[in-house]
């Protein structure tokens, strides 16, 4: 054909077709989404420290393994209270002259999603230990150890943040492990990652592809798996052997709270967190974040009361339900 034998017409047409399609599927939707979305009214901008921490997060390519998006599918429920919205990213702009915008949504989830990690794991101590070497707290983790964000000082000054690292993880060197400013910035960024609440009266978008069997199983009276709940929510601090981490997280093995009679206090700690003991890190409101039902809570309590040599009294969902309602009311106050 004459038309195809003319290189200007041929390549001109191909280029035009490509540019037109590109405009319709990439450039125009991008501009529309950039201009038509505003940050949520109660969204908090990053603090100065968190901005520096985000730069470290970007520099070390953390996005290769950690997503920051809660998809609107049922299995993503564990990463946030609602699916992520365009508005959640609306306030992210170009980083600087050299670097592009970093929404850090990610395409691989080799490690956990970080959209709401500030609520899920707010403990600074845990984060520092984990950053120094993740395998201290999560045995099976394959995350890199960021030891270069720490220094070892023989006599740390008062302002230094000393991290309690088991000796086998720093090759017998003398001194204490001290977090560098960069490590603290990075933790500040991670702690700032919290899903913003939707304004009152806004309808929460639904999670799709709900799992039907789970509900059916619950209706049939099958109880949830307490061990799985423990692994997903408690194990990274209290450890699989229930012994915690000396100087950071208390043991549940032989714990007076786990084995004692004060069920109300026990449920209160799980649901609303705990910060009464100086020598240990702060416990976040794990149960509220994960939206435990009385069935899940009972399964978890029974698991903790019957593992690692613990031998406590079993509880029923009905017993827990009463306390749960009361504890929720107390938290609301």
């Amino acid at each position: 054909m004459e038309f195809f034998d003319n290189h200007k017409k041929l390549f001109g047409t191909a280029a035009l077709l490509f540019v037109v399609l590109t405009t319709f599927v990439a450039i125009m939707p991008a501009i529309r989404n950039q201009n038509n979305n505003q940050p949520l009214p109660n969204a908090e901008p990053l603090s100065a420290d968190a901005v520096k921490g985000k730069a470290i997060f970007i520099a070390n390519g953390c996005v290769a393994c950690h997503t920051q998006q809660v998809r609107n599918v049922d299995m993503d429920k564990i990463w946030g209270g609602r699916p992520s919205l365009a508005a959640d990213y609306a306030d992210i702009h170009r980083t600087d002259l050299w670097r592009n915008t970093a929404t850090l949504m990610g395409t691989e989830r080799t490690g956990p999603d970080l959209t709401d990690v500030g609520n899920r794991q707010p403990s600074k101590d845990w984060n520092l230990v984990h950053l120094y070497n993740p395998r201290i707290v999560v045995k099976e983790s394959i995350m890199p150890a960021y030891t270069w964000l720490f220094t070892i000082k023989k006599e740390p000054s008062k302002s230094d943040v000393v991290v309690n690292i088991p000796a086998q993880y720093f090759n017998g060197q003398d001194g204490k492990v001290v977090a560098t400013q960069d490590a603290l910035y990075l933790i500040a960024y991670l702690q700032s990652l919290k899903q913003t609440k939707l304004p009152d009266g806004t309808e929460t978008p639904a999670f799709l592809y709900k799992k039907e069997e789970k509900k059916a199983a619950a209706a049939n009276g099958a109880e949830p798996d307490g061990q799985a709940i423990f692994t997903a929510n408690c194990q990274s601090c209290h450890q699989a052997n229930g012994e915690g981490l000396p100087g950071a997280f208390p043991p549940l093995k032989g714990s007076p709270i786990v084995l004692g009679d004060d069920l109300e206090k026990y449920v209160d700690i799980i649901m609303n967190g705990y910060d009464a003991r100086e020598e240990f890190g702060v416990m976040p409101p794990v149960g509220t974040n994960a939206q435990f039902t009385e069935h899940e809570l009972a399964a978890l309590i029974n698991y903790e009361r019957s593992s690692w040599g613990n031998n406590g009294k079993k509880v029923t969902p009905d017993e827990v339900k009463k306390i749960l309602d009361f504890v929720k009311l107390k938290a609301a106050k």
Binding site: T22, A26, I27, P29, A30, I31, N33, Q34, N37, A86, Y89, A90, D91, I92, H93, R94, N100, T101, A102, T103, M105
Partner: peptide
């Protein structure tokens, strides 16, 4: 050019691009 020109890269624009 589409990937590196900054005018449509804020917020979700970056993800679409």
């Amino acid at each position: 050019l589409v990937a590196y020109i900054p005018y449509w890269q804020n917020g979700l624009g970056e993800t679409i691009v």
